[in-house]
């Protein structure tokens, strides 16, 4: 994560409109969203939202309190870098003529990317890692023409079992 950036894990009840409530709160109070991802957890009643945000410590405290007070929110806490794993997935479509193909594939291999589609003029690469790794890979591809790029945004989990939240009801 960059300086000033934090990753929050938000667990919410799967009610209708819950995503817009969270996103709306960020926008109307002027909090930044660098990335936001959401998906259902092992408990289908609960959705996990991972938000990467930036700001000073007062803003971070307000984000935690304002989000925490929304009726649908079960829990919000920071996923601290030293105690968590973050991952992001990127799909990158690069223009690659048959003679360029080998070089691009070699680069992808270094980053443990996989080629998931190929055509006469392009390659599609899937790369997973933390955001820094994906940024680095994109930088390496700068000599090539990137036709389309899809990044999922950061998902994360705390390491170990210390911070696992159990909802038994």
């Amino acid at each position: 994560m960059k300086e000033n950036e934090k990753v929050f894990q938000i667990l919410v009840d799967n009610t209708s409109g819950v995503l817009s409530r969270i996103a709306g709160l960020f926008s109307r109070r002027g909090y930044n969203i660098e990335s936001i991802t959401a998906g259902v957890t092992a408990d289908p009643r609960i959705t996990r939202i991972t938000v990467v945000t930036s700001g000073d410590s007062d803003i971070m405290e307000q984000i935690e309190k304002q989000v925490g007070k929304l009726v649908d929110v079960r829990d919000i806490h920071e996923l601290k870098p030293e105690e968590s794993v973050y991952r992001e997935l990127a799909m990158i479509k690069v223009r690659a003529t048959p003679d360029q193909r080998e070089n691009v594939i070699a680069l992808a291999n270094i980053f443990r990317g996989s080629i998931i589609d190929v055509s006469h003029e392009s390659l599609m690469i899937e790369v997973t890692g933390n955001s820094g790794k994906i940024d680095a890979f994109l930088k390496l591809l700068s000599g090539y023409e990137i036709l389309e790029l899809a990044r999922t945004g950061v998902a994360g989990l705390g390491r170990g079992t210390k911070n696992v939240i159990f909802f038994d009801d």
């Binding site: 007062d58 405290e61 307000q62 309190k65 304002q66 925490g68 007070k69």
Partner: peptide
């Protein structure tokens, strides 16, 4: 009663 009010405008 609202924890979000505390520290919002004054620590």
């Amino acid at each position: 009663v609202d924890p979000a009010e505390i520290g919002k405008n004054a620590g």
